[in-house]
Design a protein around this nucleic acid. Structure first.
Length: 167
DNA sequence: TTGCTAACCTAATCACCTC
DNA sequence: GAGGTGATTAGGTTAGCAA
């Protein structure tokens, strides 16, 4: 799928910021919301940028260590290491669930019908309009798109099934 | 031009809430 | 318990930028 929209400008982490992030990653590759928020304050960055940084860092590390990882999983050398949910649960909590009001959802749905892939400018404008962080708007659109795909798939399957019954 | 990496995507899943 | 939905993850792609 070709998606053309305006991206957020690339964040350039300083050496000091990277030092803090890498140090935390080495101790805790799956930090909870509290840690991410603390890191955001310490590095003077948005918490959403910290989240993306950890996602990318994990992806690169898992890619590099793939053979070792499989071995480790087989022999259980690193219990819990690759089970993020388990690590977060009972340790640090998740971000508090955002509950949207009817009018907020109305605004989001209208925007979604207009453009399901809004760029950074549109997302920021929407976020300002409904009074939530831009990162929450981004997540809302991700989930909305995902559920629309699932819904369409189901509809298609049931249509095919009824067509088969008609034959 | 190339390699690195931030930004962004989908799909699957978890977690919490409501009914 | 089932369904709805926000949050998080893995894994993949796109694109900005320094060398």
């Amino acid at each position: 799928m070709v998606v053309t929209h305006h991206r957020r400008s690339r964040t350039r982490f300083t050496e000091d910021q990277l030092k803090v992030l890498i140090n935390t990653f080495n101790q805790k590759p799956y930090p909870g919301y509290v840690t991410k928020r603390e890191l955001a304050i310490e590095t003077n960055t948005e918490e959403s940028r910290i989240q993306i940084w950890f996602q990318n860092r994990r992806a690169r590390h898992l890619l590099k260590k793939q053979p070792d990882r499989e071995k480790a999983l087989e022999s259980s050398e690193v219990p819990g290491q690759h089970h993020p949910a388990q690590q977060i649960r009972g340790n640090e909590d998740r971000r508090h669930r955002t509950s949207y009001s009817f009018s907020q959802l109305e605004t989001l749905n209208k925007a979604f019908m207009n453009n399901p892939y809004p760029g950074i400018d549109s997302r920021e404008q929407l976020a300002k309009e409904i009074g939530v962080p831009e990162s929450r708007v981004q997540i809302w659109f991700q989930n909305r798109r995902s559920r629309l795909h699932v819904q369409r798939k189901r509809e298609l399957e049931s249509l095919e099934q009824s067509e088969r019954q008609d034959l």
